[in-house]
Design a binder for these strands. Structure first.
Lengths: 196, 196
DNA sequence: TTTTATTAATTGACCGTTCAATTAAAATAA
DNA sequence: TTATTTTAATTGAACGGTCAATTAATAAAA
C-alpha cells in the first residue's frame, strides 16, 4: 500500500477531513474515526503523522490561521493604498465563509476550546493581535499613532462582533455579505473623522 | 434521605455545578460525574430531574439567558432616560464577568455548541435578537427608526465583538472594564451623530 | 533485506443511561 | 401518641457503547 513521500499529502488529507468533521459534527463529536473515515484512511494513521488527536487538532488550527494570514498577504502583494488595505483586511476576515466546508463554525469551536487548551490559546492570541496590529498600521496613515491604536481596537471589535453574530445566526451568504459591508463602512467612518 | 420540596433546590444546585464545571473544564470535558461531584450529589439525580445530561445543559443556558434578561429589567425598573438605558444594556452584557465562577468562557462554550444543537441555537437566537431590539428601541429616541435599526446592528456587533475579544484574550477585570468603556463611548458617538 | 507506509485488531478507560434498592419524611390509622 | 404505610428523594452498581491509543501484521519501495 505505501508509496514514498506520502507524508505531506496525508497530512493535508487529514487536516481537510478534520475541517469537514468539525464543521459537520462540531469539535465535541469529532473523533479520530469521524476524521479518518472522511479522509478514507485508517484511524491509526493520525497517531503516526500527528502523534494523536490533539496534535491533529492543533495542526488544523495552525493551517486555518496561516490561510487567513496568507490570504491578506496575497491581496496586498505589490502594494496598495492604506484605505484599500483596510478593506482587504475586512474581506480576508469575512472570506472564510465561501471556503470549502463551513469553516466559520469551525473557528467558533476552536475559539471556545482555546479557553481550556494552552497551545490553542497561544495560537488564537497571536491571530487576534495580528488583526489589531494590521488595522493600527493602516489606520496610522490617517491619524496620529495613539488614535490609530484605539481606532484599531474598535475596528477589530466591530469586525469580530459582526462576524460572530453572522455566524451564530447561521446567516446565509447574502446576510454575511451585508455584515462585511457594515464593517467596511464603519472603518471608512473612522477615517473620515480625521478628514481622511 | 429525602425531605419534601427538594426539587427547586436540587435543580439550582445542579445548574450551579454545571456552570462551575463548564467554566473549569469546558463543555467538552464536562461529564455527569464532574457535575454531580461538584454538586455533592449522585450522578443518577441528573436524569431524575433533567431527563439527562442534555436537558441539564439546556436548563443551564436558559438560566444564564434569564439572568441576563432580568439584570437589565432590574436596572431600568422605574424608568430612566434613553441614553441611560443604553449604558445599562452595555453594562448588563459585560456584567457576567464578576459573577461567581467565570461565566464568560461558559457563554463561549454554549455558543459554539449552538451550531450543532437546535434547542441551544433557538435560545441563542432569541437572546441575540433581544440585544439588538433593546438597542434599537432606545436609539430610536435620537434618530429616525430606520437609522436606529442600523445603528443597533452596529452597536450590537461592537458590544459582542469587544466582549468576545476580551474573553478570548483572558482579560483581567481591568481590561474587561476598558472594553466596556469603549462600547459605551461608541454608542454615545452614535447618538452624537444625530445631534443627541 | 531493510525501511517506510499503512491497516486492522485490540486494549483499557470512560461515557451517559438505567434501574433496583435504600432511606427518611409525610400521611394515615390505631 | 404511637405504629404502620406510603411516597418522594436519592444512591450507586451494572450495562452497552464509544473513545483515543497502541500494537502487530502487512505490503510496497528502496
Amino acid at each position: 500500500m505505501p508509496k514514498v513521500g506520502m507524508e505531506p499529502v496525508r497530512r493535508q488529507q487529514l487536516i481537510d477531513a478534520t475541517l469537514e468533521s468539525v464543521a459537520e459534527l462540531g469539535l465535541q463529536a469529532t473523533t479520530i474515526n469521524s476524521i479518518s473515515k472522511r479522509a478514507g484512511l485508517s484511524s491509526g494513521i493520525i497517531s503516526h503523522y500527528f502523534g494523536g488527536k490533539q496534535g491533529l487538532i492543533e495542526a488544523t488550527v495552525r493551517y486555518l490561521l496561516n490561510s487567513l494570514k496568507y490570504s491578506l498577504l496575497d491581496k496586498t502583494y505589490g502594494g496598495c493604498s492604506a484605505e484599500q488595505r483596510l478593506m482587504y483586511i475586512v474581506e480576508a476576515n469575512f472570506a472564510m465563509v465561501q471556503q470549502q466546508s463551513n469553516t466559520t463554525r469551525t473557528w467558533l469551536s476552536f475559539w471556545a476550546q482555546s479557553m481550556h487548551d494552552n497551545e490553542l490559546h497561544r495560537l488564537q492570541h497571536v491571530n487576534s493581535r495580528r488583526l489589531q496590529s494590521n488595522l493600527a498600521v493602516s489606520l496610522a496613515a490617517f491619524m496620529p499613532r495613539a488614535e490609530a491604536k484605539e481606532a484599531a481596537e474598535l475596528a477589530a471589535g466591530m469586525i469580530d462582533g459582526l462576524w460572530l453574530r453572522a455566524v451564530l445566526s447561521k446567516a446565509d451568504h447574502h446576510a454575511f455579505h451585508h455584515s462585511e459591508t457594515l464593517a467596511k463602512r464603519y472603518i471608512q467612518s473612522l477615517i473620515k473623522q480625521f478628514g481622511g
